[in-house]
């Protein structure tokens, strides 16, 4: 960890010492990135996430060694063995949640923790008006916050992913196939985008609320809402709107489609679908209803990487769209705000 920071510092120094002068935007990104890395908050976050990773790997390896993988191979005996490496990310012996669950649980926390005081702390410290009186564009300031945060998130997510892969290689001694490798990389990319969404949301709150505590709480409230309550609410809606006639297949389908749409408004649900489809090649469809013909005629084999990616493409686009919406909202809010010192 210390060596990593040192390396980054050297890289920063080298970059700063070059003859060309970087644009103010990259100067700001550099500074933000440096600030994040040095902050206690980041070290604590990293510690939590690393612990979670090690725990989940331990659980996964125990499960694999116990041979439990065979029983949870979702009915396809061949596939259970063929994607052994991916099981590192999705298996658990029950004592701890698996890596994917941990990731989907902690990812929003990383985003919120990095972004929640991005703008308002600068405002309260009186640095915002000082920076704004320099020849920098106002949107560059917000963009720099976002880009620096996203870079940091990418570094964290990918290093954690590679950490799990490396430790997996070490403990189970079974190398990944190229396809498995790319599946993991794609999952990590989607995770980065997903954390980016939460980063944006918390940046929006930090533009909107003057107090860092209010902004952090709002971020956490939204997180908990989607994590705990949103599913419940969708269920309630489902119960309330259930068609009176249980034999009316068309109405039932229609209602289920509608509920699915509701569920998929939640970024947490979208991420869960996207990541698990990529890491579990056996997932052939995300549609809860398949007709008997479809089930009967389907070839009982895992999907190829390209097909899995195709399957989750709408989910990925939806996550990106939600990110874009929250970024646009914070952009508009920030551009309209008047910048006075400490007010």
């Amino acid at each position: 960890m210390a060596a990593f920071i040192e390396k980054l510092k050297i890289a920063r120094r080298e970059e700063g010492g070059s003859a060309r002068t970087p644009s103010p935007f990259w100067v700001m990104v550099q500074k933000e990135f440096g600030d994040h890395i040095r902050s206690w908050r980041f070290i604590i976050l990293l510690a939590i996430v690393t612990l979670a990773c090690i725990g989940s790997i331990y659980a996964a390896v125990t499960a694999l060694k116990d041979g439990q993988s065979a029983s949870s191979g979702s009915g396809s005996g061949d596939a259970a063995n063929s994607f052994l490496f991916l099981k590192m990310f999705t298996e658990s012996d029950g004592s701890l949640p698996n890596f994917l669950t941990f990731l989907s649980f902690l990812a929003p926390l990383i985003g919120i923790a990095i972004g929640f005081d991005g703008i308002n702390s600068e405002r309260n410290k009186g640095t915002l008006s000082r920076v704004m009186s320099q020849p920098v564009y106002r949107d560059d300031f917000l963009n720099a916050k976002f880009v620096a945060g996203l870079l940091l998130i990418a570094v964290v997510v990918f290093s954690l992913g590679f950490l799990v892969m490396g430790m997996g290689l070490f403990t189970i001694g079974y190398p990944p196939t190229p396809e498995e490798f790319w599946r993991v990389i794609a999952t990590l990319l989607i995770t980065t985008v997903y954390v980016g969404l939460w980063l944006n949301l918390s940046l929006l709150f930090s533009v909107r609320f003057r107090q860092a505590a209010t902004s952090a709480l709002s971020g956490i409230a939204v997180w908990i809402f989607f994590l705990v309550f949103y599913g419940m609410i969708v269920n309630l809606v489902g119960n309330a709107t259930a068609p009176g006639d249980p034999t009316d297949a068309a109405a039932l389908l229609h209602q289920q489609d509608w509920l699915m749409l509701l569920s998929r408004l939640s970024p947490a649900y979208l991420f869960q679908e996207a990541a698990s489809t990529l890491l579990l090649p056996d997932t052939r469809t995300l549609n809860p209803f398949i007709t008997q013909d479809q089930a009967y005629l389907a070839i009982n084999a895992p999907l190829s990487f390209g097909q899995s990616l195709l399957l989750v493409w709408p989910q990925v686009v939806a996550i990106v769209a939600e990110t874009a919406i929250s970024f646009a909202a914070s952009y508009v809010a920030f551009m309209r705000q008047e910048i006075r010192s400490r007010s």
Binding site: P22, V27, G126, R130, V131, S133, S341
Partner: peptide
């Protein structure tokens, strides 16, 4: 050059760092 009332600086950076940052925002080489 504008100095706001109750001017604020990045408190976990040194005075020198703060000045260098401002200078670099103005496109001055490090």
């Amino acid at each position: 050059g504008y100095m706001p009332d109750d001017v604020g600086f990045y408190e976990d950076r040194s005075g020198l760092d703060n000045l260098v940052y401002t200078a670099r925002l103005n496109g001055i080489e490090a």
